[in-house]
């Protein structure tokens, strides 16, 4: 049994799953490309991934992001990038990527005795 779980963000239902189980062509040539949206909040120093949306071009993507993700004053700066330009690590590589780090707790700076005068560490 092959169970596939995929995570979708608000507004992001990829065309390739729109007609699961049918024989129809699942590619919609007229669909606008997908964009990933990053928002920096007023207090934040970094842009955080907010979700994704569809837009015909970068200008429209920024405006859509403004309308969809900053309506409630969530941010003061927007980055967008077309989703196809994002390269992701392969889940199949998880073991060799991440597990070797799990038994190397000495990489955390937790074995030092800090002087009391030192704050905010």
């Amino acid at each position: 049994m092959n169970i596939q779980i995929r995570k979708f963000y608000y507004g992001d239902i990829p065309e390739d799953t729109a007609q699961v189980g049918s024989n129809h062509s699942t590619t919609n040539e007229n669909a606008w490309p997908l964009w990933e949206v990053f928002i920096r909040s007023k207090q934040g120093l970094d842009h955080k991934h907010a979700g994704s949306l569809h837009a015909a071009d970068a200008a429209m993507a920024i405006e859509n992001a403004r309308d969809v993700y900053t309506r409630r004053q969530e941010g003061v700066s927007i980055w967008v990038i077309e989703s196809k330009h994002v390269h992701a690590s392969n889940p199949d590589d998880a073991e060799m990527f991440y597990e070797p780090a799990s038994d190397k707790i000495y990489r955390h700076p937790t074995f030092y005795d800090l002087p009391d005068e030192l704050k905010h560490m």
Partner: peptide
């Protein structure tokens, strides 16, 4: 499209 629906509603 959803994003423009939100835009015109805004």
């Amino acid at each position: 499209i959803l994003e423009q629906d939100i835009a015109i509603t805004n």
